[in-house]
Each structure stands twice: as C-alpha cells, then as structure tokens.
C-alpha cells in the first residue's frame, strides 16, 4: 500500500485521529459531561469523514442529528439523573473485569483487522459525480419509499413510547 500524501489522505488522517481521540477521551474521562463533549467531538469528526466519502447530505444529517439532537438528549439524560463523581473510577476494584473486557475486545479487533487487510477488495471507485442530493432523494422516495414510510411509523411509535415511559406515573 503506497502511502501517497494527497490532500484526501491528510484530511482522512486528521479526521480519523480526531474521531478515535474523541472516543478514547470518552472512555477515559472521569466526569460525565466531559464524556458527552468528547462523544460530540468524535461524531463531528465522523461527519467530516462522510464529506471525504462524497456523502455531503449525510454529513449535514450527522451534524444535525448526532452532534445536535442526540448530544443534547444525552446531556438532559445526565442532568436529570444523579451521578456520583467517584463512581466512574474505572480501574480500581474491577480490574479483573476491565482486563477481561480489554482482552476480549482486543481479540475481536485483531480478528476484524486481520480479515480487513487480508480480503482482496475490488479497487473500483464509484462515479461520485452522480452522488447528488437529488439522486439520493429520488432513491429514497421511489425505490425505498416503503421502508421510508415504515420508518415514519417507527418514529411515531418511538415518540409515543418515549413520552409514556418518561412521564410521571399516576399515584395509585
């Protein structure tokens, strides 16, 4: 694999380092609010990755839904529940559990990376000139219109279910 230093590879390197760094900061941070900020940073970097892959609409959706809506939802989830600061001390007390998890995840990661680098992928690149928002909309509203409508029903059910679950129960 020849490492050509094009603009795309530099941008990919920087963005992937930001995404992975945000993820690691989320795992290692001790305060819950810092974890939300690190996760939002990581998700924002993934939006940049989408731009590199010629998925501009998805990048905007990622910023709106993930770094906007879901981060704020998680912040509400943190603020409305109580957290002890010394609760997330990570390594002390549960060293065996953490070590076992680390070994398991490391083994899975090694297997996946081995598979990725051994598989001969076809080196073809799609005609990214045709990757427009118009084509995406036509694809969603013509070929995938039934899944789209089912998604709207699912969102309605999730909305009603979330309201019913989270609302205060009547005193009985």
């Amino acid at each position: 694999m020849a490492l050509s230093l094009s603009g795309e590879s530099i941008a990919f390197f920087v963005l992937s380092m930001m995404a992975i760094g945000g993820g690691i900061m989320m795992i290692n941070s001790t305060r819950v609010v810092h974890m939300v900020l690190a996760l939002a940073f990581s998700l924002l970097s993934i939006a940049g990755i989408y731009v590199l892959l010629h998925a501009e609409f998805l990048a905007v959706v990622q910023v709106l839904i993930y770094t906007g809506a879901i981060s704020i939802l998680m912040l509400f989830g943190i603020m409305l529940t109580k957290h002890k600061v010394d609760e997330e001390d990570g390594w002390s007390g549960r060293l065996g559990h953490s070590l076992l998890s680390f070994l398991g995840v490391g083994a899975l990661f090694a297997i996946v990376m081995g598979v990725i680098y051994r598989t001969p992928f076809a080196g073809k690149v799609a005609a990214t000139k045709s990757f427009t928002v118009e084509a995406l909309g036509k694809s969603v509203f013509k070929q995938y219109v039934i899944p789209f409508e089912l998604t709207s029903i699912l969102l309605l059910v999730a909305l009603v279910g979330a309201v019913i679950l989270a609302k205060k129960e009547a005193d009985s």
Partner: peptide, 22 residues
C-alpha cells in the same frame, strides 16, 4: 479500519462502564 477501531472503543465502553447513560 477506522470503523473497526471506533467499534472496538464502543464495545469496550459497553462492557466496562457501570453508568447506564455511558
């Protein structure tokens, strides 16, 4: 590979964090 790294970080978080929000 980037997807695999992020997935592994997330999986480690799921397995080790005790706080359900995390």
């Amino acid at each position: 590979a980037l997807g695999a790294v992020l997935f592994s970080i997330g999986l480690y978080g799921v397995l080790t964090k005790r706080n359900a929000v995390l």
